[in-house]
Design a protein around this nucleic acid. Structure first.
Length: 103
DNA sequence: AACGTGACTGCCC
DNA sequence: CGGGCAGCCACGT
């Protein structure tokens, strides 16, 4: 199981503290795939299978992104609840991006 | 083994 | 500033 990219992404995202967010590109780069942002997004797509805080993973533009307006709304709501200031579905990465990623 | 798909990113116009 | 195109990675069939 740990051999799958999915599990790796899952662990990293699970270590992201509240009030902080990360981007697909950041995780992909941390895993050694600077261009694997899509693979990370693909893994997040399966977030419903585990307790992955997928709402803490956003786009590199600071945009919450998401799998639909409803998903974005839910993510933005949760993030806001954790202390992340979401403005118009946009987040200030300079202030909330968690760069100390770790397994 | 190959094709298609997907919650992305960066560059160009 | 906004929209469009191409490139990458991993998984399922």
């Amino acid at each position: 199981m740990s051999d799958n990219f999915f599990d790796l992404v899952y662990k990293v995202v699970a270590q992201v503290p509240e009030g902080k967010v990360t981007t697909y590109g950041a995780v992909a780069r941390f895993l050694g795939n600077p261009r694997g942002s899509r693979a990370v997004g693909w893994a997040m797509r399966q977030c419903g299978r585990s307790d992955i805080p997928c709402h803490r993973v956003i786009n590199s533009d600071g945009n919450v992104g998401g799998y639909g307006a409803e998903g974005v709304a839910r993510k933005a709501l949760l993030l806001r609840k954790e202390g992340v200031k979401v403005r118009n579905g946009k987040i200030d990465l300079s202030r909330f991006e968690f760069k100390r990623l770790r397994l």
